[in-house]
Design a protein around this nucleic acid. Sequence first.
DNA 1: ACCTGAACACCGTTCAAGT
DNA 2: ACCTGAACACCGTTCAAGT
Lengths: 222, 222
Amino acid sequence: MKKAVGTRRQDSLSRDRIIDAAIRILDSDGETGLTFQALAKTLATGAGAIYWHVENKNDLLTAACDAVVARTLDAAEGGAMPGATIRALAVGLFDAMDEHPWIGSALARAGGKMPILRILERLGQQVRALGVPQEAEWTTVSAILSYILGVGGQNAANAQFAGQHGLDRSKFLEEVADEWSRLDPDEFPFARSIALYLPQHDDRADFVAGIDLILRGIGMPS
Amino acid sequence: MKKAVGTRRQDSLSRDRIIDAAIRILDSDGETGLTFQALAKTLATGAGAIYWHVENKNDLLTAACDAVVARTLDAAEGGAMPGATIRALAVGLFDAMDEHPWIGSALARAGGKMPILRILERLGQQVRALGVPQEAEWTTVSAILSYILGVGGQNAANAQFAGQHGLDRSKFLEEVADEWSRLDPDEFPFARSIALYLPQHDDRADFVAGIDLILRGIGMPS
DNA sequence: ACCTGAACACCGTTCAAGT
DNA sequence: ACCTGAACACCGTTCAAGT
């Protein structure tokens, strides 16, 4: 039977199909679940075939991260004001990193590569629209970016740890709070006192509060 | 010959000796250089022996990171004002992460463990001394912490990438700037315009500027 | 040009056996 | 209690051979 023109073979490999499969594995099994064997099996191919389309594992991880980041940034609703748009971008990224914790560590390893660059660009355009003086642009943008990456990294570490020990988020926080509350009161007064607050705190709200703190620092009323 | 009382056998293994050796390897050969084989060779012992003193590789990495962080925090000169002390702590950590880039990624993987906790505590005490309202304490401290961790993570990624490609810092930045300046002007106007500034920028000054931004956000004049 | 899958190199971790 | 070092399991990457 003759194939219709333009019909792609369903089973042909491509960079995009590999990246899609990688994302699915990362989402369901976490970072440790993504191996070339598992990926090859999912794609019904040999492990070596993947290397025709992808440089190495880091390249794959960065590409998978970039795909999700690009989608996320596109979906972020821009508010009327630049400040609101920055907040929307940040919150969009937070939610994405919360849903796919592996993004946090992928971003940390991505250096100046695409996913980072994409975020930087979007933030930069808004900071510029905000009317920040030119000398302060880079400082402002990289501060917001670093903050977002820092939160994402911690989030990834927590998710990883919780996953390894079969704890859900709230059990995990209780665990940490419990540990902190047993610290030496003379050496760790702050951590001890904050421990009580930990289990009931709202990560997302705290994250936004941090963004607002930075925006206030550049003179944006919040 | 009888050993003097209190003299420890020079060649006996201990957690501290293992951690010291690990730090030396990490500093000279980077994260990829630290293997249990290499460590065992340095310590003139078997790979398995290390497991008597250390849980696993992640534990070792976290412990090594904590040792350096503890030293760094102790060495940070407290200024007269809490704001100056926060700045000093942050800069101390920046310099440590610059000197030992592996700390950045170790911190990212450390979850709520000791090195993070130690930083949190010191920052927390200063934020408290600053007179930040109680409800804002956690937000403030975790914003500063996340920012520091974000910067450290990026720094580690850059160092890793540069090391892999045999570039020093300035060559690396030129490389990135060159890449960015060739981006599509319609899609990446901000990154392109900032590329010119990149090679001549001062990481450390930018880092401090970010800290000041956050401090200004909580109402601290800088 | 693209795919196959066995083989290689390497590494974290375990464990039976020693002292 | 602490150490030895061989063995195991696993994984990223390569490559000769296929289509």
